[in-house]
Design a protein around this nucleic acid. Structure first.
Lengths: 357, 357
DNA sequence: CTGAAAGCGCTAACAT
DNA sequence: ATGTTAGCGCTTTCAG
């Protein structure tokens, strides 16, 4: 016999071997129907007789057969999964976004491929890996870190992309972002309403979209209520607890009079509160504090904050990815609304103080 | 010409079409080498001459070719990815584990497929989807929720599995868990050393491994230091902030004398602290509080806790999955050590009190 | 309603 | 060192 078997296979290539995953050929042989029919059954095609369908399913069950995703993909020319790129930071924040994405993708029959960048893993190479190997039908990128101009990375054979947190106009790239401007404006107005005038800021890291947008919005909002922005009351942070504590300590040491501190995320606000307590001062009596994000720990310390519905963000991104894949039309960029959550940390200035203004 | 083209293809089946991803055939044709050679180049096989390799890479670059993951998988008979199942809860906790897993998997060239269960998505069906479609070469399951007996789910054609948080002896299933017993023992001893005697507990939800193990360890630890376990001082929680607050409020209303409250996770501890503060009492002067997990917010309120290195847990699980796939030997179950982190929330009893004992 | 067989992109024997 | 070609498991015309 010729070592290379010239026989075309309409029959299974090998006999059924229990260690192997059963294939559509096994089902074909055991049921007596062709592989085409078996395929039709599992693809839920209409034109299969009831009895045939039942028989095929029965045999499949006995054999333990279920169609191979890989085989299907190859035949279809699509992968059936969507890749998601996140910065490697352990915030429940991103976990929630991811869950939202996965929720939608699962509803549409897609799998979620997750990859982290940062911590020594270069965003661009992660992107390249995900984008070039035909690994996914679409790519969702959380880019709140500054990872450079994503639109420059894409090569010729591009996967549709959804960007989180950063708008970017380019064909095939859709974006979903948080409504930073409204959130900041609402918070500044709230602090003002509560009698605070000297509203300091602990900002986020330079180069990150959210931080920069929040800062810009802060300036606008302050101007709108005719408050002056004092550059001495803008302290640098990097979105970590420690940076918030550090900034607040330094600020307190400087002894500049401050009514309220608006931290550009909750983690830093927690840090700021810690520093204030350590200094023997009280929130909100001595200094009011506000945050941004709405993480669960914020509730614990009664932190006034801007709640971002991260699950909604995730769902929105997932939905976009799906419609980008289905390709009916380019989905419109989305801006997810946020909500001001007022708790005691932003408490009113003492009445006499307010009146004195 | 016959509608079905009978020609075998050693040449590309279609001519190069710019809208298509370039395939190995395109590279073959344009470079003049066979697909086998191109394949060898990309698989980094030794037996390819320098000049050939360079030419192939050059052409590939020009064409924008990179090997299709799907094609490779089908030929190899493996998927190149590992699936991870998590409960759908937005804790930074699991995000950290996931990042650790992905870190290791990426190092070994695997992709991470993520899927959540809970919130209306049944754990078993998620499992079935992941396990039956030949989607992944291994499966990592975080099972801290009670999701039933995983070992019963597996069918005949099983993917190797790694279980997080729950030991389970079965061939092909490895586990990695937190050292709950040591953590709880260390904490109880610490509280005892600090002069606390009436050590209450806010427990986790029944049916979850961690909660039950911590409870059992608590009893053992109390016995070892000759303290009696008072059933009236064991309050039910479910690992959420709110449940911690609620339990603590109820407890305070009951006016039973308590020195310290050991909450079985940090979220509940934060809730308990909130309740204590609301009642006008002070931590640790009136009641000491301790937690478990080591989430970042714990630092903010100076919470004494048991730090679980979630990244290590993730890395360990990833490593296990890889060795299960490589199949050299069944990796040994791992118990990840934890560390007692002492902060001010567990502060010493006032001196006179201690002496009075 | 069902069957035959040609791919999908790549790998790995086997050949030279 | 390089080429040839039979699969990997499934889908999908095209024929009947």
């Amino acid at each position: 016999m010729n070592p290379r078997n010239p026989k075309k296979r309409s029959v299974p290539p090998k006999e059924r071997d229990n260690s192997r995953r059963p294939t559509i050929y096994d089902v074909s042989r055991c049921s007596g129907f062709s592989t085409a029919t078996v395929s039709r059954v599992f693809a839920n095609y209409p034109g299969v007789s009831r009895s045939t369908r039942d028989r095929v399913l029965e045999v499949s069950r006995d054999l333990g057969f279920s169609p191979s995703h890989i085989g299907r993909c190859l035949a279809h020319g699509s992968t059936g999964n969507v890749a998601v790129m996140f910065p490697d930071m352990a915030s429940g924040f991103y976990a929630e976004v991811l869950a939202g994405i996965d929720e939608v993708l699962a509803e549409h029959g897609f799998n979620t491929l997750t990859a982290f960048y940062g911590r020594g893993r270069d965003a661009k190479s992660v992107f390249t890996r995900l984008n070039s190997g035909f690994l996914a039908d679409a790519l969702i990128i959380a880019s709140s870190y500054d990872i450079g101009d994503v639109s420059q990375w894409s090569g010729s054979c591009d996967t549709p992309m959804v960007l989180l947190d950063r708008p970017l106009a380019k064909a095939g790239i859709s974006t979903v972002c948080i409504d930073n401007a409204s959130g900041v404006a609402a918070m500044v107005r709230h602090l003002h309403t509560n009698g605070h005038r000297r509203i300091a800021v602990i900002s986020g890291p330079e180069g990150t979209w959210d931080a920069e947008q929040r800062m810009a919005s802060y300036r606008v909002a302050m101007q709108e209520i005719k408050l002056e922005v004092n550059p001495l009351l803008i302290w640098a942070g990097n979105f970590t607890f420690e940076s918030g504590r550090h900034a607040m300590r330094t600020a307190l040491a400087g002894r500049l009079p401050v009514d309220a501190v608006f931290c550009f995320n909750d983690e830093m606000a927690l840090g700021a509160i810690a520093a204030i307590n350590e200094a023997g001062l009280k929130v909100p009596d001595d200094i009011a504090v506000a945050g941004f994000d709405g993480i669960s720990a914020a509730e614990g310390v009664q932190l006034t904050t801007v709640a971002c519905p991260m699950r909604t963000v995730g769902r929105s991104a997932g939905t976009m990815a799906v419609s980008l894949i289905k390709g009916t039309e380019r989905p419109r960029d989305q801006v997810i609304p946020v909500r001001l959550v007022i708790r005691s940390s932003s408490g009113k200035r003492a009445a006499h103080w307010t009146k004195a203004m």
